[in-house]
Every structure is written in structure tokens, then in C-alpha cells.
């Protein structure tokens, strides 16, 4: 059990006299880690299923990775997501160091814009694939690809909505301890999605092209 005055999670600084509230925050953050790990299993097995479909049998004489992968787009998506991870980190730092709420909101807003840009590029990628007839109903391989990348995109979409909600909450409620704890968890979620993306660009895109 962590003592109230132990070093806190970054982004969370409730002060020494908030012992009870701090323990509560620790519990909630730990719970969120557990949730993320459960989600990681979901992603991991989607990866495993994709790998079992990414072969000649799974491609069913349909489009191959070389036909459909637009590496420039993927690289741009990767950089966008990575930069948004950084800006979110800065947002949590501004919150931890008790800077004015509007500074935090600005950095959160920047992360949101980058996340939306990522989604835009992902949508473009999906559209290009669909135009080439590379839709999930074409083959098992494409089903696997669309579902894996789509699962990630759905998570990023949820993350974007969550950022919007948190911006609204900071505006309405201020940097209340509960709001801080939520932003902290949102940060874990956002960084986690970037980690999953490492797997996607390494296995699906780069691995697919080899």
C-alpha cells in the first residue's frame, strides 16, 4: 500500500493533506491499468488472428500487402500519433505543475487536433483501399487487416471524444482532483494507443511489405 506522501503519479499532485483523495486516485489509476491490460489481450489476439490470415490461403488470390499499403500515409500517421503522445505528455505536465487551466486545455486541444488528423489520414487510407476493391468482404486477410486497424481507429475515436469531454470538464468544473485523475487516465489510454500502433506499423505495414 502506497503511503499518501510517496511520490505521485505524474500529472497528479493533490498535496499532502489530500491523503484520502490520493489513495482513491491510486486505486482508480490501478484499476485503469488493469482495464488497459484486458484491452491489450483483445488487441494481442486480434494481432494473432491477423497473422494467421496474412498468408496465401488467407489472401484468397485477392489484393496482397504490396498492392494496398501506402507507406507514406502510414509514416505520416505514425508521426502524428507520436507527436500527439508528446503533446499529451506536456498537457499532463502543465496540470501537474498547476499552470492555469487554459494552458492545459490548449495542450489537450493540440493533442485532439493531432488525433483527428491521424483519423483523417486513416480514413483516407481505408478509402483508397476500398477504391482498389480491397474491402474486408474480399478475403480473410483483408478482414483481419480492416478489423485490426479499425479496432485501433475506434479506440482513437473514443480517445478523441474523451479529450473533448475532459476539455469540457476542465472548463466547467476546473482542475478538481477527480478531473485531474480522469485526465491522467486519459493520458494512459492515449499513450497505450500509441504503443499498440507500434505493433500495427511494424507487423501489418512493414512486416506486410517484406
Amino acid at each position: 500500500m502506497t503511503q499518501p506522501n510517496a511520490k505521485l503519479h505524474p500529472g497528479l499532485n493533490l498535496g499532502h493533506h489530500h491523503g484520502e483523495a490520493h489513495n482513491q486516485a491510486e486505486t482508480v489509476v490501478f484499476g485503469f491499468w488493469v482495464f488497459l491490460m484486458s484491452d491489450l489481450i483483445l488487441f494481442g489476439l486480434t494481432f494473432a488472428s491477423y497473422i494467421t490470415l496474412a498468408n496465401n490461403m488467407g489472401m484468397a488470390s485477392g489484393p496482397t500487402p504490396a498492392d494496398i499499403i501506402d507507406l507514406v500515409n502510414v509514416f505520416a500517421q505514425t508521426v502524428l500519433l507520436l507527436v500527439s503522445s508528446l503533446t499529451f505528455g506536456v498537457a499532463s505536465l502543465t496540470m501537474r505543475h498547476k499552470m492555469p487551466a487554459k494552458v492545459t486545455i490548449a495542450w489537450l486541444g493540440l493533442s485532439l487536433v493531432l488525433g483527428l488528423a491521424f483519423l483523417g489520414l486513416a480514413a483516407l487510407d481505408f478509402l483508397n483501399m476500398a477504391n482498389q476493391g480491397a474491402v474486408p468482404s474480399r478475403s480473410g486477410y483483408l478482414s483481419g487487416l480492416w478489423s485490426l486497424v479499425g479496432l485501433h481507429a475506434v479506440h482513437v475515436t473514443a480517445g478523441c471524444f474523451w479529450i473533448m469531454i475532459m476539455i469540457a470538464q476542465i472548463a466547467v468544473l476546473g482542475l478538481h482532483p477527480i478531473v485531474k485523475s480522469r485526465v491522467l487516465r486519459l493520458g494512459l489510454f492515449w499513450h497505450f494507443l500509441d504503443i499498440v500502433w507500434i505493433g500495427i506499423f511494424s507487423i501489418v505495414y512493414l512486416g506486410g511489405l517484406l
Partner: peptide, 15 residues
Amino acid sequence: DFHFFTNDLGGNMMN
């Protein structure tokens, strides 16, 4: 109309 577990077009019901 995905093809994860179908008989045709590369599905694999064993997964």
C-alpha cells in the same frame, strides 16, 4: 460480410 470463419475466401473457422 467479413471472412474470418467462412468456408470461402480465406476464412478459417479453426481460429
